[in-house]
């Protein structure tokens, strides 16, 4: 049995979308709806991290952009009274601007120096938020954030879900467009071989900064969405948790692929809630850690490559061929 890839991709995407659209009607549980909203937000967030990684830059402090987007959008919305639906995109621009600044310090760094700098950057931003910027940000006490939709609107949760679904689809489409465009090709070229890319006339600094700006913008959108959904904002948003989860999601789903962050976020959220229902506490994190390590070692292209690998394996078995040595070098 053979699959036609492109056709399957098309149908699969349509089916995924269809499921996303109808799922609220399959359940009347607000818990699940709320979980889905948070999941969509983290799909956006993970996708933004993935875009930066696609350009060869692995950030360990993406919570910084998540948080800056949230603070900027909240402050603008609270001061001006503009609806959060608009300020989300203005706030994210602030995140993108800061993203370019931090990108400027990072573009010439080796990949693990960059990881250290971004990790530290999240800590610095949190520190600034609670010290120098405290008069504006409310310091450790935080500040309340205007809701996306007023709870007085009947069925507002459903409207909110669909609104966030639309923004999620738009974000993924934007990332798809970037990846397919000349810019995306440039990202790829620079990631694979910077010298050759330079020789071909590409300016690595410019493209790395672009990647930072795009990624920070989308992460800012995700952060703003989350905080307008939750309704209260504290500096804990910059925490290591929020930097590490998107990485875990993307690695499991498939680094550098469009569907990876989506698959990874959905699968891990389901596993996580399932484990929680069994009453496990610390064990949940241990299991997630094991899954992450197994994925890195045995499924380096993530869950999205799983069906392909299974197919490959079946094919070989049918031909009674021995499995090839794992190509890990």
């Amino acid at each position: 049995m053979y699959f036609n890839r492109d056709e399957l991709a098309k149908y699969g995407m349509i089916a995924t979308l269809a499921i996303a659209v109808v799922i609220p009607f399959l359940t009347d549980s607000m818990f699940i709806l709320n979980l889905l909203v948070l999941m969509l937000i983290f799909i956006i967030f993970a996708s933004s991290w993935n875009l930066l990684a696609y350009s060869g830059q692995g950030s360990l402090g993406h919570a910084a952009f998540f948080g800056i987007g949230a603070y900027a959008s909240t402050l603008i919305a609270a001061q001006s009274g503009i609806t959060p639906f608009v300020t989300i995109f203005i706030g994210a621009a602030v995140a993108a601007f800061i993203g370019i600044l931090i990108g400027l310090t990072c573009v010439r760094l080796k990949e693990w120096f960059l990881a250290m700098v971004t990790f530290g950057f999240a800590i610095i931003v949190q520190t600034l938020t609670v010290s120098v910027l405290a008069p504006v940000t409310g310091g450790w006490d935080g500040l309340s954030s205007p809701r996306l939709l007023s709870p007085s609107i009947p069925g507002y949760q459903l409207i909110e879900y669909y609104a966030i679904l639309v923004i999620t689809i738009a974000s993924i489409a934007a990332i798809w467009y970037i990846m397919k465009s000349r810019i995306g090709l440039a990202f790829l070229a620079i990631r694979e071989n910077e010298l050759e890319a330079r020789a071909a006339g590409l300016d690595p600094v410019r493209y790395r900064l672009l990647a930072f700006a795009f990624s920070a913008y989308i992460a800012g959108v995700a952060g703003a969405l989350e905080i307008h959904h939750i309704g209260y904002l504290t500096p804990e948003l910059y925490g290591v948790d929020n930097s590490f989860w998107p990485i875990t999601y993307v690695i499991l789903g498939g680094l550098g692929t469009l569907a990876g962050p989506v698959v990874g976020t959905v699968v891990l959220t389901v596993i996580w809630e399932g484990l929680k229902a069994t009453g496990l506490t610390f064990g949940r994190y241990v299991i997630v850690g094991v899954i992450l390590i197994l994925a890195i070692i045995f499924l380096p292209r993530g869950l999205v490559s799983l069906p392909e690998q299974v197919q490959e394996w079946l094919k070989r078995r049918r031909r009674k061929e021995p499995l090839p040595e794992p190509v890990g070098d």
Binding site: T248, Y285, G328
Partner: peptide, 27 residues
């Protein structure tokens, strides 16, 4: 098993190790 596949992979793997060790110790 992942030696030579890039620094990023090592960093991600160590995130997994952090989850396991911290919470394993807590257990």
């Amino acid at each position: 098993p992942i030696l030579g596949t890039g620094k990023l992979n090592e960093i991600f793997l160590s995130i997994g190790l952090i989850y396991i060790f911290q919470n394993g110790a807590a257990m």
